[in-house]
Structures are given as structure tokens and as C-alpha cells.
């Protein structure tokens, strides 16, 4: 197990290296941007801007600003948003993590569950109309942009049928239903397609044939020997899935007017609120890198083959 700890340590080191690079690059990119970060810059005279810059340390040489920023970052300070009442970015984002996280988790759970069911059904009925229907459903899910789906859901279930609130985040769980559905389509389609491919391969494997030769029924073989082996690699697409959810949350939160990170991010982009943009960038990257690490560790735990081989050293 010693070498596994070493491997893990190496992975965590890379994780921080990645985050460091992202933070640095973001910092310098932001400095390249034209204009000042003040919401009322049109009304400000050069002198006022100078004073403001002085106050926020923006007149210092770039390397000094960089060091100050990075050391504050280590302490968890993402700076101050100039656009939104001079609120610290950390505070601005922390109130918004809740709704985003709830939607994201609900969407992943719902989407992958349905996707796994759909994928298994498709694989077990390979090359029949059931398979075709399931595969086509998955392709529809992949193809229709989430903002189109979100608007459709809003129109049908919010405006016409009035089953759920059209927008906003003030109705408890029922507020989360439509945005969750809109976000769940992508994980559903991706996992359905992934599971189908894995399952088809597993079902044609020698050990499945041996299991059939033992006298197990097709269904028992599929569930006892097939699904487990097909599910294990599914954790590898959790990373890309998380990215897709972040992307999706930007539009879905906007369409449903949900006070989440995505909505704040879009607002900040449109108002050149650089500290917040940097904050969200670092937050998203940290989440992705964290998920990739967790997936790696998880994979080692659930796959008995990796459990041992990992003890041998890196990768």
C-alpha cells in the first residue's frame, strides 16, 4: 500500500499544480483586459480612478499584485467584487453554491439512473427496435441544446400546464424540478450511451458465455455479471459530466432565474466583474480537479483489478 500512497500523493501534487497554473493564467489574462473594473467608470475622472486603483492595490507593479493575489488565494480570499456592492467574492459565491449544488446533484442522480436503465435495456435487446429507440433517445438528449430543452420545459410545464413554477427559487423542491430535468438530459444521454457500449462488450465476453453455460438465465447473467462490470467504467465519465453540468447550469440557471453560481458567472461576464470571474474560474477548476481525483480513487476501490495493480506504482 506504500506505493499507492505515493501515487495518491503525486496525484494531489498535480492537482495543486493544475490549480496554481489556472489561477496564474487567469490572473494575467484578466490584467490584459481593457477598461477598469468599476461599474460606474464612465462617471469617474482619471483622478478618481487613480484613487480607486490605489485603494485596491491596482497601481502596484504587476508582479506585486500577482504575489498579493496568490497569497490571499491561499488563505481562501478571492478578492472583492467591484460590481456587486463591493462584496467579497467568497461571500458572493458562498450564498449561491447551495442551489447550484442541489440542482447538479439531483441532475446527476436522476440522469445517470435513467441513463443506466436505458443503456442496459438497449444492450440486452441489441439490434432490435427497443435498442434503436433507446439509442435514438440518447442521441436526441445529446443533440438538443440544453437551453432549447430548458425553454421547452418552461413553456410546457410552467406556462401551459402550470405544474411547476415558471422560474425563481422560492418554492422549495418544486422550483428545482424543471431546471433539474433540463440539466439531467445530458448525463442521461451520456450514461445511456456509455453503458450500452460497455454492456454490449461485456455481454459478448467469454465470462458471460461461461455464466450462460452454467445455466443462468439471460437476465440473471446480465444483472449479476453484466451490469456490475459495465458500471465500473462509468465513473470515468463523471469528470466530463461535471463539466457538462457547469456549462448547462450557466444557461439553465439564467432561464429559470435561479440564484446559483452559473447565473452569477454570466452576470459577472456581462459586467466585466473580473474578481468574480476569476473566483468562479478557480472554483470550477477546483471542483473538476477534485472530481477527477475522487474518480481515480473510487475506481481503484471498486475495481478489484486496479486495487492490486495500483499497488505496483504509478498509473
Amino acid at each position: 500500500m506504500k506505493s499507492y500512497a505515493k501515487y495518491l500523493g503525486k496525484r494531489i501534487l498535480y492537482m495543486f499544480l493544475t490549480l496554481f497554473l489556472i489561477a496564474s493564467i487567469t490572473f494575467f489574462l484578466m490584467k490584459l483586459l481593457p477598461g477598469t473594473p468599476y461599474s460606474n467608470q464612465d462617471k469617474l475622472s482619471e483622478e478618481q480612478i487613480f484613487i480607486m486603483n490605489e485603494k485596491y492595490g491596482l497601481n502596484e507593479p504587476l508582479p506585486v499584485q500577482y504575489v498579493v493575489y496568490m497569497s490571499r488565494l491561499l488563505g481562501g480570499d478571492l478578492g472583492t467584487s467591484f460590481q456587486f456592492n463591493n462584496t467579497p467574492v467568497t461571500e458572493l459565491l458562498s450564498t449561491r453554491v447551495g442551489p447550484s449544488l442541489q440542482l447538479g446533484i439531483q441532475a446527476v442522480v436522476l440522469g445517470t439512473t435513467l441513463g443506466i436503465i436505458l443503456g442496459v435495456i438497449a444492450a440486452m435487446n441489441q439490434n432490435t427496435w427497443i435498442d434503436t429507440t433507446a439509442t435514438f433517445t440518447a442521441i436526441l438528449g445529446r443533440s438538443i441544446p440544453n437551453f432549447v430543452i430548458a425553454v421547452l420545459l418552461q413553456l410546457i410545464f410552467g406556462v401551459y400546464l402550470k405544474w411547476f413554477p415558471i422560474a425563481l427559487w422560492n418554492n422549495g423542491f418544486s422550483s428545482s424540478v424543471l431546471p433539474t430535468l433540463a440539466l439531467a438530459i445530458a448525463p442521461l444521454a451520456d450514461s445511456a450511451r456509455f453503458i450500452r457500449t460497455e454492456m454490449v462488450e461485456v455481454l459478448s465476453s467469454d465470462y458471460v458465455e461461461l455464466a450462460r453455460a452454467k445455466g443462468l438465465s439471460r437476465l440473471t447473467v446480465a444483472f449479476k455479471h453484466g451490469v456490475r462490470n459495465a458500471l465500473i467504467p462509468l465513473v470515468t465519465i463523471l469528470g466530463p459530466m461535471a463539466v457538462a453540468l457547469m456549462t448547462g447550469s450557466l444557461v439553465v440557471e439564467n432561464i429559470f432565474a435561479i440564484p446559483g453560481i452559473g447565473e452569477q458567472f454570466v452576470k459577472s461576464i456581462l459586467t466585466n466583474d473580473y474578481p468574480t470571474i476569476m473566483g468562479v474560474t478557480i472554483l470550477y477548476s477546483a471542483m473538476l480537479v477534485g472530481i477527477i481525483l475522487v474518480v481515480d480513487v473510487l475506481y481503484g476501490i471498486i475495481d478489484p483489478r486496479i486495487r492490486v495493480t495500483n499497488e505496483g506504482g504509478d498509473e
Binding site: 489556472i22 463539466v243 468562479v280 474560474t281 477548476s285
Partner: peptide, 22 residues
């Protein structure tokens, strides 16, 4: 490979948006 590993830790969404801002 290390470069790829680091790059894949960056959400493409973030990169695209940053590029468009710059």
C-alpha cells in the same frame, strides 16, 4: 502527457469564456 493531464483539469467552459473576454 503531464501537460495533457494538467490541461484536462481545466473546464473547457472556463477557457473558452476567458479567451472570449480577452
Amino acid at each position: 502527457q503531464r501537460v495533457l493531464e494538467i490541461l484536462s483539469g481545466v473546464p473547457n467552459l472556463v477557457v473558452v469564456i476567458l479567451m472570449l473576454l480577452v
